[in-house]
Design a protein around this nucleic acid. Sequence first.
RNA 1: GGGCGUGUAGCUCAGGUGGCUAGAGCGCACCCCUGAUAAGGGUGAGGUCGACAGUUCGACUCUGUCCACGCCCA
Length: 1091
Amino acid sequence: MPAEPSAGAPSGPDYKATLNLPKTSFPMRANLVQNEPASQKRWATLGLYERLREARAGRPRFAFHDGPPYANGDIHLGHLLNKSLKDFVVRLKAMEGMDCPYTPGWDCHGLPIEAKVVTDLTETGKMAKIASLEADARRMAVRRECQKYAEKYVRLQGGQMQRLLTMADYADPYLTMSPRYEGATLELFATLIEQGLVFRQRKPVHWSIANRTALAEAELEYMDRDDLSIYVDFEADDADAVYDAFGLPRAPEEDSEDLDSAGREFPGGRPTVRPGFMIWTTTPWTLPANLGIAVNPRFEYALVRLDGAVTVVAKEMAEKIAQIGRVEEATIIATTTGDRLAGLRYRHPFVDGPGLAAALEADMPSPGRSAATLSHAGRGWEAGLHRVVAADYVTLEDGTGLVHTAPGHGVEDYQTGLREGLPIYSPVQADGTYDATAPEWLRGKTVWDANTLVTDRLKQSGHLYHAHTFNHSYPHDWRSKTPVIFRATEQWFVGVDRPYMLPDDNAFERNKTMRQRAIDIVFIEMYAPAATPAQHQIQQEYIREVHEIQQEAQEDQQHQSSLTHASPEELSALIAGASEMSNEHMLPASMSIRFVPEWGRNRLRGMLESRPDWCISRQRAWGLPIPAFTLRRGDGTEATLLTPMSVRAVAAVVRAKGSDAWFQAAPADLLAGYDAKADPDAPPEFGAGFDAAALRKSEDIFDVWFESGSSWHSVMVERGHGFPVDLYLEGSDQHRGWFQLSMLCGLGARGRAPFRALLTHGFIVDRDGKKMSKSLGNTLNVEDLFKEFGADVCRWWVAGQPYEGDIKVDLEFFKTAGESYRKVRNTLRFLLSNLSDAPSEDLASAVKGDFPPTSIDAWALASFDALSKTVRKAYAAYDFRLATQAIYDFCNDTLSAVYLAATKDRLYCDRADSVRRRRTQRAMRILADGLCRLLAPVIPHTADEAWRSLHGEPGANETPGLCVHLQEFLPPTDIRADEGWGAVMKARDAALVALEAAKKAGGDAAVENPLDAGVALPDPGGTLGRFDARDLADLLGVSRVALDPAAHGPGVTDLRGEPRCERSWKRDGTVRRRSDGGMLSDRDAEAVGVS
RNA sequence: GGGCGUGUAGCUCAGGUGGCUAGAGCGCACCCCUGAUAAGGGUGAGGUCGACAGUUCGACUCUGUCCACGCCCA
């Protein structure tokens, strides 16, 4: 290294003390773990949420609605993600100047809590005592424990969510178990009843015979059990129809007079015996309820001869079945596909089909106006019992490929039954014995005895092909450890395929079903001009379909007589309007839903298309009761009271006393506000006046999804926070859950979706993309993350995620987020530290200050305007990743690497009040202020900490009202930067490469320190000439810049031969020995005050 | 098995309507600074764009099949 010219000379004064070095109270180390709780406390003292609502009163409203998490357990990474995103939204809308109510809520009812509580009570021995109580008292005892449990977790999670620094109304959250919420939910339910959307129907559920109760999936325990496995041959009703299906030619001389007698057969012709359909089952006791045989329409079925008999089985299974039956002769006569078999009839081996049909017909509830009696009118079983039906779920894994179907005793059977119009028939009573509709020899017998009784009977009648004992895994009641059965019970439903009509419906919407309305709204573009021929075709088909359905609805006026309809002309006009792509909107555009990301639209639509009627009843204690009453008629049957008026009467009681009242009060008290005589919907048994003492309260509670699906009403409408809601923001699983069910509730009561926009995020997975689970041990504890990184770092990490898809998580990623957070923090710190001696002035006057377009400050401020625009646009699109990345890049590149590096010299070395130093300070104040605001939605603690440091008087920590979260985003400064800045930055890049090359030159020629270098820049257009050469030198970090119009690239000069300023370390050509004995440049000499 | 998604440098991710040497940050390597210092700055090396087939003059981008992963169903 060459000797410094000053080396060896007597060292001059120590100039460090004469510099304006950075100074700030804003520490480099965030210490979030300690400081965030202090912010939390400060905001609480300030009453930040309330203050902000007050300040924004009368401003445009942004109605965000928080979906209720389940009040169970600690918050996990999913909550961290979800709640952070929600808080970003609310805070950024507030920064946009909007009024943003944010009521956090919890889902408090439901089985998981009840199950946990019952387990705990059982383990502590308290359950035995509770079990001895009378029913209502027993439920109340369990409910009290459940409530305590839910309250505990609401408190716990609420604390954790506040620790995450979310800003919401934690003083008054919504709880689905609170009386106000429950009452409002019942009122919404009344509205749905009014629309004729609520009805009662049978549905098979897991049933514990021991406890006489329905069980949820979570209450089942699978244990091995021996059962009879039997193969049964059901005789075909019409043998020729079967042979026709297999394409067997009829024998010319045969007139199929007597197929049962052994006649002659000719080769290739049809057998002379009656064929059968062979099924397999492990629950012989369900055979009395058999109403159909399901085949897969795509499978190949074989007509096989098994010794003397002829039967139909899946071709693939034929050989195996022959082996099982140990038949001597097994030949395949012909094959056909399942779809050709559908519709064929068979004879039940021991049930009289027509007799059963008549009995079931008589049992059908009659149509009427009361919700309770609205059953599936028009859905009879004209097509007949005991026939072959098609079903896709039929597999070839075991059995025969033909599946015994009893709609009252199996989930798939039930769905098939609904689709095929088979009754949901279950002759089994609550105690597991057969009722009077069963064959006489089974009546009063239990289903377990029936297994052998049925098998013996089939054997005697010759229908049993094979029977053996079979060990398999079978669901048991987790408490009694006894096997459970599937049994159809009466449940409440909300019908998605029932036409209804709301006051605001236009002709197009009138008499559409929930499903149609929902799909219309999700796909509102259906009525927008089609972009492609394919789209146009889809539109046409869809519109035609709607037309047909509406016409059907018009024809079927059984229970809809009061509804009016679009006239065919009116409808045609509307449809014609749509098909001609006119501007006529069939649905108001205001009904449309924005999906973020857009594919949520397809997902929600798919789920709406495939969803069955919504079963809203459960047989549990911990929930909101379905306020129905029953009255025993003289003939032993029951009449049900559930009308809009009766429900509203109970709702009033629940509002006042909570749903506990249902279990504690007598029917007369619950119905105190109800006058049956004034209720046009009351069933006749009630309308004439009735004895309240004879009423029985329903033991059903609501599906928790009904409660949460009503939240737009029970929270947002109830509290006056706005309807429809502007945004729902949840995980993508909620397309089936909360989004869809909120939509159904909204459609039923208001005819529209309760939300204007749906934002969904993906799920947290581990670093390898595998799902998180405790058993895999790949989870991270959120409290630990708070302790290790602090909430702001966690939030910064969330903001950086592309949340549309799965989100990979690993401790490493939080460390990385912490690093990038520190980068932003340090940039803020450096800005603040250079403002310690800046005169405080309000920003407005600073903005109006003089920033010449060629000043580096104008460049920085114009860049900030651009950033601000990008960030606010990204925020508006909920693209937090883009927003925070832009902020990060701005801090890292624009500020740290360029602006702050270039202005260091003037800030440190200029006279404190030099024009250009003060100008830079003014710019830096605007930058610091603006950055705090842009960062506030994402890292609320850090933004506020910096804000207070920036704006506080000395001792700022005592300034209580100082808070960035009461501010709004800054309008653009509109400061103009010279068009030449692009060229300057390009020249800078080229110069930096040249300097790097100079460094690597090796030996004595290597100029390692840029301050030892001067650079000559080419300036072909003369652009650079407009700029101050000192600014250019600072931008390159060199001592001196000269312009060389003739040069092709930047030229680096070694300045080590020139003296170096002992204060600024620059070799700018003005450095000489000064009066104080030091070597100083002109600028530094002036700053120090020497000559 | 079905519906909706995702798969691009070591890591996390960008890449309308197909077309110049596929981008960013982190990390890494080398270097500078020591007056933002448990900081700051510079330069640079990393990719057969999940696999296979097809359409095309040309595909990360379009089509099909397959594989892996996630959510929701069955």
